[in-house]
C-alpha cells in the first residue's frame, strides 16, 4: 500500500508543479473575447472544484467510516429505499448549479457572437480568412491586400473574420484573442475578435485536415492602428499583385512560408454564397435563401428548435 500512496503523491505533486508554470495560453487572454472565455473557464473550474471536493470528501468519509474491518462482525447494514428529501437535495443542488452555469453560458454566447464589448463604436476591420491544404489566406478587401500564413491586425479595433475553406473543414483559432470557429467550403462563418494589446500570437487550424495539419499554423501580430496603416501602405508599394494563376498555384496542397500580395483573390474567386448564423447582425443575411437550409442540417424531428432564425 505504501508504494501506491507514494505514487499518488507523485502524481499530485506533478500536477501542482504543472499548474505553477507560466500562464496557459487560453488563460492568458489578450483580447475581450478571449477574456470572456477565460473568465467563464475560471468560474467553471471554481464551481467544479467545489463539486469535486464535495464528492471526494463524501467518498472518503463513507470509506473510512463504513469499512467492514472497522465494524463488528454481526453488523447488518440496514435496508433503505430512497428518501424523498435526500434525493430532492441530490437533484436540487445540481439543478441550481447547472441553472447558474446555463445563465452564464447563454450570456457569454451572445457576447462572443457580437462585436467585442467596448469596441462597438469603432468601424470593424473585415478580413476574409480562407484555408486551403495546408495554408491560410488572409484577404483585406478594404485595404486591397492579401497575405499567406501571417496576419497583421490593428489593436483596439473590432475584427470581423469571414471564414471559409477550399477543401476540408478547418477551424480558425487564435487562442489568446478568442475561441475558434469552423471554416467550411460552402458557406462563410463570421468570427468576432479584438486585440487589446500589441504583441505576437500563435494562430492555427485546430480541426484535423489531413497530412499537413500539424504545421497548418500562422503568425499573428497585433500592432497599433498607425503602425498597421503604415504596413498596409508598405505592402501596397512593394508587393506583387495576386493573379488568378498565382492563386490557383497557391491552392495546390502543400506548405508555404509567409507571402504578401496586393489585391485580393475575392475579385476573381469569390467566397461561397451561403452564410451561417455566426454574425450578431444576422438580419443582414436573413434575406439569404440558403441560410435556413444550411442550418437545418440535423436529422431528427427536433428540427424545430434548431431552425430559429
Amino acid at each position: 500500500m505504501k508504494i501506491k500512496w507514494a505514487l499518488l503523491t507523485i502524481v499530485f505533486t506533478v500536477i501542482t508543479v504543472l499548474t505553477g508554470c507560466e500562464p496557459l495560453m487560453v488563460l492568458d487572454p489578450k483580447g475581450p473575447q478571449a477574456e470572456t472565455q477565460a473568465n467563464d473557464i475560471m468560474l467553471s473550474i471554481g464551481i467544479m472544484s467545489f463539486i469535486v471536493i464535495v464528492v471526494f470528501a463524501l467518498l472518503a468519509f463513507v470509506l473510512i467510516k463504513y469499512r467492514a474491518s472497522k465494524q463488528s462482525k454481526d453488523y447488518e447494514p440496514p435496508h433503505m429505499e430512497g428518501n424523498v428529501i435526500v434525493e430532492a437535495i441530490c437533484v436540487g443542488i445540481p439543478v441550481l448549479i447547472v441553472a447558474f452555469l446555463s445563465f452564464v453560458s447563454v450570456q457569454s454566447n451572445y457576447k462572443v457572437e457580437a462585436t467585442p464589448k467596448g469596441y462597438e463604436d469603432k468601424e470593424p476591420l473585415v478580413i476574409y480568412a480562407s484555408s486551403s491544404n495546408w495554408k491560410w489566406h488572409f484577404s483585406y478587401p478594404e485595404e486591397g491586400i492579401e497575405t499567406v500564413n501571417y496576419l497583421n491586425i490593428p489593436t483596439d479595433r473590432p475584427l470581423e473574420f469571414k471564414l471559409y475553406s477550399y477543401g476540408p473543414i478547418t477551424s480558425f483559432w487564435i487562442p489568446q484573442l478568442g475561441g475558434q470557429k469552423y471554416a467550411m467550403s460552402d458557406m462563410v462563418n463570421t468570427l468576432h475578435l479584438g486585440a487589446d494589446v500589441p504583441g505576437e500570437f500563435m494562430g492555427r487550424n485546430a480541426n484535423f485536415s489531413g497530412k499537413g495539419f500539424a504545421e497548418n499554423t500562422f503568425d499573428v501580430e497585433a500592432m497599433p492602428e498607425a503602425e498597421f496603416d503604415e504596413w498596409v501602405e508598405e505592402v501596397k508599394e512593394t508587393a506583387e499583385p495576386v493573379t488568378e494563376e498565382k492563386f490557383d498555384e497557391l491552392l495546390e496542397p502543400g506548405h508555404l512560408g509567409r507571402m504578401t500580395f496586393t489585391g485580393t483573390h475575392l475579385e476573381f474567386n469569390p467566397p461561397p454564397t451561403g452564410h451561417n448564423h455566426g454574425s450578431s447582425d444576422s438580419d443582414e443575411h436573413s434575406e439569404d435563401e440558403h441560410t435556413e437550409h444550411q442550418e437545418s442540417s440535423d436529422s431528427d424531428e427536433k428540427e424545430t428548435e434548431h431552425n430559429n432564425h
Binding site: V106, V112, Y182, S282, N308
Partner: peptide, 11 residues
C-alpha cells in the same frame, strides 16, 4: 464552433 449562432448554441 460550426457557427449555428448564439441561440442554437445556448439551447
Amino acid at each position: 464552433t460550426m457557427g449555428q449562432g448564439a441561440l442554437t448554441n445556448s439551447i
